[in-house]
């Protein structure tokens, strides 16, 4: 392997403030991690309960229907939409588009507004139908 030289480090690691762009980046990672660790565990649990039989499935539904279960599911729904929308934003940026400061900032803000909106619409619908 070639000689390892000291690589340049980001000079501003301690100097930053919250902004839509960096928030979108952080939440992309957080939501992705939540979806992977909690979301895929819940999906696997759901499928195993479904395969096991009616009683096991009813147990799953009973746990999912507690307020803790609903908070987790609403959280995962939000993580799904946040990750989906900022993922689309990343795909657009991968083509070299949307790096103009104002448009980029607006795109980041749009992912947060969209994710909260989609989560709210979906859960108002689900809880409305359940009643």
């Amino acid at each position: 392997m070639a000689e390892q030289r000291a690589r340049p480090l980001s000079p501003h690691l301690g100097v930053w403030r919250w902004g839509p762009g960096m928030a979108a980046s952080i939440f992309h990672r957080v939501s992705g991690g939540a979806l992977t660790l909690a979301g895929l565990a819940a999906l696997t649990w759901w499928l195993l309960a479904l395969a096991k039989g009616g009683d096991a499935y009813d147990d799953f539904v009973a746990i999912a229907s507690t307020w803790v279960g609903i908070v987790v599911l609403v959280g995962l729904t939000w993580a799904f939409f946040q990750h989906l929308l900022s993922g689309i934003r990343h795909l657009v940026m991968d083509t070299g588009e949307n790096f103009e400061l104002r448009a980029n900032k607006n795109g980041a803000i749009l992912t947060f507004v969209g994710a909260v909106l989609l989560t709210a619409v979906l859960w108002f619908y689900i809880l409305g139908v359940a009643k």
Partner: peptide
Amino acid sequence: RVSSIALLLLGVWLIASLLMLPALDHGTV
């Protein structure tokens, strides 16, 4: 990136399918 595009389609399919099922009981699912 490729898997993200696949998941975009499959994820929307999954949510839409669950919403369109008449119920989410064991038998229906």
